[in-house]
Write a protein that binds this DNA or RNA. Structure first.
Lengths: 115, 115
DNA sequence: CAAATAAGCAACCTAATGGTTGCGTATTAG
DNA sequence: CTAATACGCAACCATTAGGTTGCTTATTTG
């Protein structure tokens, strides 16, 4: 039971992370940061389809999900990726898919033995 | 440019997947399927906080994101995980986080050489 | 100092989301 | 055949989410 409770807890933490990544504009910001290194809002807005304020909102959303971190530098604020959660979420997906494939394999083998 | 376009295309496909995973109820369904193997709606609803129809809606959302697949068996419909997209999304997260860490490492090294 | 730049705040709007309830329809079981 | 089961459909509701515009505030720069 302790195991499944821990799993449930990690699950509850994973949902906000996926939710944060589940928007095209935010995903674009993440990709953009990854390619371009630490950037400020103006740079992140350039070339995109939405306003600076929209980007700002998205950055705060990403921050709340623990995917991004910022620091003030003079009159500008620099944003950078926070990879802990990102990597964690990635691992979770891998585990889930691998477990399923294994279980399904066992199930198929069992069914075929019956037939 | 061809590279970044391909990357952008894969990005655009990734957003709906993350969005689908970004809801606690849906994430619970995914986890539940993973533990319990192929299940019908009633079983998936058991023990949860929401109604059968809510679960049904979520299943359709997951289906549209390509994360789940169903087949009719008599009067019931059996749902199972579709791990392709799941694994793909997981890989994307790993790549992004790894790339960032590398780039940041190079940046730090560069800055320190300047100082 | 004045002008330009980077950002924050707040109000507002529209559309999508997550949820419910109620009812209809196959399919299986007794 | 009748009852129970598993599901689908549709309407409806409240809240949130993504976005915009307008204004204010700090910091540079010329």
């Amino acid at each position: 039971m302790a195991r499944s409770q821990a799993a449930a807890a990690r699950l509850a933490q994973a949902a906000p992370v996926f939710a944060a990544l589940g928007d095209p504009s935010r995903l674009r910001i993440v990709a953009r940061l990854c390619e371009g290194g630490p950037l400020n809002i103006v740079r992140l807005t350039e070339g995109g389809a939405v306003s600076r304020q929209a980007v700002s909102k998205h950055l705060r959303a990403l921050e709340q999900a623990g995917l991004v971190r910022s620091s003030r530098a003079g009159r500008e604020r620099i944003w950078e990726l926070e990879t802990h959660r990102l990597a964690e979420a990635g691992r979770w997906l891998s585990v889930i898919s691998a477990q399923w494939d294994q279980a399904l394999g066992r199930l198929k083998a069992f069914v075929e033995r019956q037939a």
